[in-house]
Design a binder for these strands. Structure first.
Length: 237
DNA sequence: AATTTTCTCAACCGCACAACG
DNA sequence: GCGTTGTGCGGTTGAGAAAAT
């Protein structure tokens, strides 16, 4: 017995999508919604695996996908979120409207990671790979300093305008604007229902935090989740 | 101009997890 | 509680583009 494969590889197209396939997928989802990804390819007349359709839609065809280069601000936000969340690309993507987890993951691996290494920062721990000054050890400055393959370096704002700089070693808190859906709708993904953005004007509880491990709302004095012992991050900053 | 090397990123793969019967 | 199914996530691959020689 065992589980059926997600698709019949012998009868599915693989590799790059054609314009015709894209059009067909867009048209089908526009008319019917995606519904069950598994049954979508057949219904849409595509010789593709449901997973492949989903990926193509989410990463490329969705109308709200932002294409093009990442801005310095986006890079810095990615670094900060990565420091906080690790390789939770989908959560990081949730904080960058129009960016997909795959795009951010690629950007991290091909650009940011390398820049951090060049700047003497370990991209896994976000700590200096060797003893450095405070300034050198700052991920953001490492990012911009290491962008320097010469002319690539962007103009720097004056020090007082540098975003998210926390002198004196003060702990950095960034606005995650996270909230929890207690009663997720069926259409929401699991991760989305656990940790999703909010536009609620009143915002979350002043003392609330979210565990980066189990994604549960925590209203605890401690900075450690009592359930899974992961870090609890502030929701209000 | 031709060839080789490096880089980028779309797509695939396998696993984990939740939902359901 | 267990097995099956569907979905989503993170790691990895490989084709094509760009740069270097």
């Amino acid at each position: 017995m065992g589980r059926k494969p997600c698709c019949d590889k012998a009868h599915t197209n693989r590799g790059a999508w054609t314009k015709e396939e894209d059009d067909r997928l867009i048209e089908y989802i526009r008319m019917n919604g995606h519904g069950s990804w598994r049954s979508l390819p057949k219904a849409a007349g595509l010789l593709r695996c449901g997973k492949s359709c989903r990926l193509r839609w989410i990463n490329y065809l969705r109308p709200d996908v932002k294409r093009g280069n990442f801005t310095i601000d986006e890079d810095e936000l990615i670094i900060k979120l990565h420091k906080l969340l690790g390789n939770k690309w989908s959560l990081i993507a949730g904080r960058l409207p129009g960016r997909t987890d795959n795009e951010i993951k690629n950007h991290w691996n091909t650009h940011i990671r390398r820049r951090l290494l060049r700047g003497g920062i370990d991209p896994k721990t976000h700590q200096p790979t060797k003893p450095t000054t405070t300034e050198e050890g700052n991920c953001s400055s490492a990012l911009t300093a290491a962008t320097t393959d010469g002319a690539e370096k962007p103009p720097q704002p004056p020090p007082e305008q540098q975003p998210n700089q926390f002198p004196d070693g003060e702990e950095e808190h960034i606005n995650l604007e996270l909230t929890l859906a207690l009663f997720p709708t069926p259409s929401e993904s699991t991760a989305e229902s656990k940790l999703r953005r909010t536009t609620a004007p009143d915002g979350p509880d002043e003392d609330a935090g979210a565990c980066v491990g189990c994604c549960q709302l925590r209203n605890e004095d401690s900075h450690q989740c009592q359930k899974c012992y992961n870090q609890v991050v502030n929701l209000t900053l």
